[in-house]
């Protein structure tokens, strides 16, 4: 199956593309809408997928993807399994700063179905930042949208002097124990 590659297409002028991958449709859609509502000085394309690989027939229409955010809902073990299975279809060069894990549902510890060690391990194994949020709460959703936009801006090369790899290293240091 088609592996997603970060550099096999040319970037588009003044635009950036993010791919949100996650089994739960509702919260992801809301996050995408929140990102669109934010003020920004470049065009963004948000692609939503429930899992990877992406269908190959529309590949020629798809722009270059600058950032992949895998959405994991801690209330659903399936969402974690789904992300783990999808990771096989991502090229290694994406993991140099162009991937992040978005863990939602963290306000509801009582509903937790996923072992948190597994999520931390995922972040460590794939050298990618793990971001905790609660997409069902509007305030946190907006903050997460802003955060993702900022990351997307960096990953698309729109912030002079800061590369995606450099940024993810910064994130890792701050998240480290």
């Amino acid at each position: 199956m088609a592996v997603l590659r970060p550099f096999d297409k040319l970037p588009e002028l003044n635009s950036a593309t993010i791919l949100l991958v996650g089994a739960e449709g509702g919260p992801q859609q809301q996050l995408a809408e929140a990102m669109l509502r934010e003020k920004k000085d470049f065009n963004i394309n948000i692609h939503l997928a429930s899992s990877l690989p992406l269908p190959s027939e529309r590949d020629h229409l798809r722009p270059r993807i600058d950032l992949i955010a895998f959405v994991i809902d801690i209330k659903s073990k399936y969402s974690l399994k789904n992300v783990q299975a999808s990771l096989a279809y991502v090229d290694v060069r994406f993991f140099l700063g162009k991937v992040c894990f978005l863990v939602t549902g963290v306000g509801r510890a009582n509903n937790c179905s996923v072992e948190m060690n597994a999520i931390w391990k995922l972040g460590e194994d794939y050298c990618s930042p793990v971001i905790f949020c609660e997409l069902e709460l509007e305030g946190i959703r907006v903050a997460t949208a802003q955060r993702l936009l900022r990351m997307l801006q960096i990953c698309a090369g729109r912030v002079p002097g800061v590369s995606a790899l450099y940024f993810s290293l910064l994130m890792r240091n701050s998240a480290g124990d």
Partner: peptide
């Protein structure tokens, strides 16, 4: 491409009612 921003569904997106 048209200017502006867009959300695009990739592949078999499950459209659950966002209750």
């Amino acid at each position: 491409r048209p200017a502006g921003s867009a959300i695009e569904m990739e592949g078999a997106m499950r459209t659950l009612p966002s209750s």
